[in-house]
């Protein structure tokens, strides 16, 4: 057939032209989608890694937590470490019972370290319990220490004693964990309460894990203490 060659050339031009046109249009379409991507559904965006947010993190709890953190040195670069009883009273702006009730959900997570009368020394049971609780961090951001002193004795002495008990906890943690965790300072929130605010009732002897199980526990003993717990709240 004498038209075979022109026909073949035409077929070649058409097939190659179609292939090139197809490829060009496919790449161009992709380029356009690349430049103007479809808006992603925000609900489908991956969440960002964050600390635990436990159900007990109520707005009231967080408000107290935030005030304590801001005022007691954790939230900034202040050299001050911890809050005094007067601070807490002002910051919390809540009654003793309401303040203590905030921490009730931490009964399983936290513990109470008991001290001897007029002493800030951690005994072996307290050290063991403190280490256990510290090492069970999970997703928590802050570790709270709320030290107390009983009602016996002068207010100034009790305040000082409470402060020392809080410091004992901090020193133990620094001594044992600073090498593994250089940022203990940024995690530790301390309050030391004298006898004038938020004393614990005897019920805490049974409802909470404390460091002297099987030993007598009463209103006085439970307040010669330091409450410790990781707090699973985001702020």
């Amino acid at each position: 057939m004498k038209h075979a060659l022109p026909l073949g050339l035409l077929a070649g031009a058409v097939s190659l032209g179609s292939a090139l046109g197809f490829v060009h249009s496919e790449v161009r379409a992709a380029s356009k989608r690349l430049a103007e991507p479809a808006r992603k559904d925000p609900a489908l965006q991956a969440a960002v890694a964050d600390h635990t947010e436990a159900p007990y993190c109520t707005p009231q709890f967080k408000a107290v937590l935030q005030r304590v953190i801001n005022a007691c040195g954790l939230g900034g670069q202040e050299s001050r470490r911890g809050c005094q009883p007067a601070d807490v009273k002002t910051l919390a702006s809540i009654s003793d019972d309401d303040f203590n009730a905030l921490f009730t959900p931490l009964a399983q997570r936290g513990a109470i370290l008991l001290f001897d009368d007029a002493s800030e020394k951690l005994d072996e049971g307290a050290k063991k319990l403190l280490a256990e609780r510290w090492e069970d961090r999970r997703g928590a951001r802050y570790f709270f220490v709320v030290a107390r002193a009983s009602r016996t004795g002068a207010a100034d002495m009790n305040r000082a004693l409470s402060h020392k008990r809080a410091n004992s906890v901090e020193i133990f943690l620094q001594d044992h964990y600073k090498s593994q965790d250089p940022e203990i300072d940024k995690k530790l929130g301390m309050l030391w309460l004298g006898k004038e605010f938020a004393q614990l009732s005897k019920g805490y002897c049974t409802d909470w894990t404390h460091s002297r199980p099987g030993k007598p526990c009463n209103d006085e003993a439970i307040n010669r203490s330091a409450f410790i717990s990781w707090v699973d709240c985001r702020l």
């Binding site: 026909l7 073949g8 077929a11």
Partner: peptide, 25 residues
């Protein structure tokens, strides 16, 4: 796949030529 696409486009045209040319090819 792009090389395949181009190659088969060639073979399509060549086959059309051979089909129409017969013994004239």
């Amino acid at each position: 796949s792009l090389f395949a696409l181009g190659a088969y486009a060639f073979f399509l045209a060549a086959s059309v030529y051979l089909l129409t040319a017969g013994n004239a090819a």
